[in-house]
Simulated scan of single mutants.
Amino acid sequence: MAKKKEVTNQDILGFYIDYFLENNKAPHSVYKFAKQYNFEEAVFYANFSSFEQIEKTFFTSLFQQTMSLLEKSEDFESYDARTKLLSFYFTYFEMLTANRSFTIALLKKDKNKLKSLSKLTDLRKHFKQFFDTLEIEKIDLKQEKLIEFQEKTMSEMAWFQFLFTLKFWIEDTSLSFEKTDIFIEKSVNTSFDLMDIAPLKSLIDFGKFMWQERSSFKM
């Protein structure tokens, strides 16, 4: 009998992608899956609890690879928030494109869209944590609860934008997915323009001035 292979979680992820694309479905059992790729079943459970966890790990693995590439760039830390988010999008979707067949098969495997979205729950946490690190200027609301609500709302809206971009990419039929690149640039720029608080701050300052000088305007 051939000696069982020593494999890593990335090896198992690679085996799973290979099996899924070859058979257009998940393996029937962990036992048969491990046997086919010549490693111990216990090794699988030392790395993953189920095939569903592998599917979640696929998306977070691409996230970690994306961040690793971005952080290797000497310029990345000096970028403003808008450029950092654009860099993330372009890099992450480039990796998705390199794994397009598996990504689409994975997200379209379940007719229940909520079940498909459940594969992205771990990615959602990582993405929102990354978004929260971006130095986006916020309105000084003074009250702690309002500040927390503002931060949660912004990161949640950013996640919805990501999902919308993912849907656009899945349906994109343009060469080299150039329309997705245009969509990313325009949608991120638009969202930052809408988050630009300078005009709102000017309006608030003007309101404060008018309130302080209200006695001068009595008829």
Rank of each mutant, 00 (worst) to 15 (best):
M67F: 08
T66R: 04
S68Y: 14
M67Q: 08
Y92D: 09
T97I: 03
E94K: 07
T97R: 13
N99L: 06
F93D: 06
E77R: 07
L70Y: 10
T83K: 13
K56P: 04
Y89R: 02
F88Y: 04
R82W: 04
Q64R: 07
Q65M: 12
D75I: 04
S78A: 13
S68D: 15
N99I: 08
F58T: 11
D80A: 07
R82A: 08
L69Q: 13
F90Y: 11
L96S: 10
L69G: 05
E77W: 06
T91F: 00
R82N: 10
L69S: 15
Q64T: 09
T91V: 08
S78V: 02
F88G: 00
S68A: 14
M95N: 13
F90S: 05
T91H: 02
F90Q: 04
F90M: 09
F93C: 03
L85K: 07
L62W: 12
E74N: 10
K84F: 01
N99W: 08
F93T: 02
K72M: 12
S61V: 06
F59Q: 12
Y89M: 12
E74H: 06
E94S: 11
D80E: 14
M95A: 09
F63G: 03
D80M: 02
F93M: 05
S87T: 09
L62R: 10
T60W: 05
L96D: 06
Y92M: 07
F88L: 01
K56H: 14
T91L: 03
T91A: 06
K56V: 08
F58V: 12
A81E: 15
Y92I: 03
Q64C: 03
E71K: 15
S61W: 07
S73L: 01
E77N: 14
K84E: 03
T66E: 09
E94M: 05
N99Y: 07
Y79M: 05
S87F: 01
L69A: 12
S78C: 02
S78Y: 12
M67Y: 10
T57H: 15
Q64H: 12
Q65I: 12
S87A: 15
L96C: 10
Y79F: 15
E77K: 13
S73Y: 00
Q65L: 11
S87Q: 11
M95C: 01
S78K: 12
A81K: 03
L62M: 13
R82F: 02
S61C: 08
F63C: 06
F88T: 00
N99G: 05
T83A: 09
K84H: 05
Q64E: 13
T83F: 02
L86M: 11
L85Q: 14
Q64F: 07
F58W: 08
E71I: 07
D75V: 03
L85N: 05
E94R: 04
F59R: 11
L69T: 14
F88Q: 00
L86P: 00
D75N: 06
F76D: 08
S78P: 00
L69P: 00
E71T: 09
S87E: 09
F59H: 10
S87N: 11
L96T: 06
F63N: 13
T57G: 05
S73F: 00
S61I: 07
F58G: 08
F76M: 01
F59D: 09
A98H: 08
L85F: 05
R82T: 10
K56E: 15
T66H: 05
N99A: 09
F76Q: 03
F88W: 05
Y79L: 14
S73E: 15
F76T: 01
